[in-house]
Write a protein that binds this DNA or RNA. Structure first.
Length: 286
DNA sequence: CTTACGGCCTGGGTGC
DNA sequence: TGCACCCAGGCCGTAA
């Protein structure tokens, strides 16, 4: 499940090899996850990759048209759950579920593989790009603590829902939400507005530390995630709650629990992360 | 307007 | 060997 650290790792890997390269051809397999497949085939060949950026969970390939740079545009790629972007020689084995091949002018290929096809690919014209990106929330690594506090404390939604909402913070998903909340000792059902100043301070510091460490370890490989060289990350070895239902809390030894919060599996320690008042059902046993 | 929630997309893994 | 079910991120519709 590529979230900010995984997408950042992929972006950094691609940045080593793609800028300056020209796309010579585009070949497509299944296209139901591409906004306008014909536009890819029409617009990309001949264009030069000027830069590779990450914006939240998006990869942005900034492109220049062959005839002058007056009409720049971008290719936006969202990896969804199982998307992978890998560069390789054209004779490399084609992984199952590879649906897009970008031929490059150095003879190599950039490939998009996605088992579930929950990813999305589209071309962003320059005007559209700004408005699309403007809808996204704060980058947790760039935001100041004040900005972070304003985004969270004005809201009466659960902190879990706020963290998953890309319009609040961009780039965080289920894994890094749960890992951050456990480390900050905050229950996923706490409401943003009910967090004390000290808790928001702790959460701000924690989420940044978690994301930075995860980037350092090149992301979490839980199911399909690999970087642009096909290599897994290592942050899954540092997971403290994610997918650890029934196992002992690393801090207090109590069994980690799983509950659906904001529609997603949420792992937390019922002792280290006290539930807010009213969130536990009266009469519920165990 | 804000929030919560169910459904949908897809297919590998799991469990019966 | 089969197969129903679960689940993931984003998005959309609906209801309170």
């Amino acid at each position: 499940m590529p979230e900010l650290p995984e997408v950042e790792t992929v972006a950094r890997g691609l940045r080593m090899v793609l800028p300056g390269r020209r796309i010579v051809d585009v070949r497509l397999g299944k296209t139901d996850f591409i906004d306008d497949p014909a536009a890819l085939e029409r617009e990309l060949p001949g264009s030069r990759i000027a830069a590779v950026r990450r914006f939240g969970k998006f990869l942005l390939f900034e492109l220049e048209r062959p005839n002058g740079k007056e009409r720049e545009f971008s290719l936006q790629v969202h990896l969804g759950m199982t998307g992978q972007m890998i560069t390789c020689p054209p004779e490399a084995r084609i992984a199952p579920h590879t649906h897009v091949f970008f031929g490059l002018d150095d003879g190599r290929e950039l490939r998009y593989t996605d088992v579930r096809r929950f990813g999305r690919i589209r071309i962003l014209a320059n005007g559209t790009r700004e408005s699309v990106l403007a809808e996204q929330g704060l980058d947790p690594l760039e935001a100041s603590e004040d900005e972070f506090r304003r985004k969270i404390s004005a809201r009466r939604a659960r902190i879990k829902a706020l963290f998953l909402d890309q319009h609040v913070l961009r780039g965080i998903g289920n894994i890094y939400t749960d890992e951050s909340l456990w480390r900050a000792r905050i229950h996923p059902k706490r409401l943003g507005a009910n967090l004390k100043a000290e808790e928001i301070h702790r959460l701000y510091r924690t989420v940044r530390r978690v994301l930075e460490e995860a980037i350092r370890l090149r992301g979490s490989s839980v199911s399909d995630y690999v970087d642009s060289n096909g290599e897994p990350g290592e942050f899954q070895l540092r997971h403290r709650v994610y997918m650890r239902e029934g196992k002992k809390c690393y801090r207090c030894g109590i069994k980690i629990r799983r509950a659906i919060v904001a529609g997603r599996s949420s792992y937390f320690c019922p002792q280290c992360q006290p539930a807010p008042r009213g969130s536990t059902r009266v009469g519920a046993s165990r």
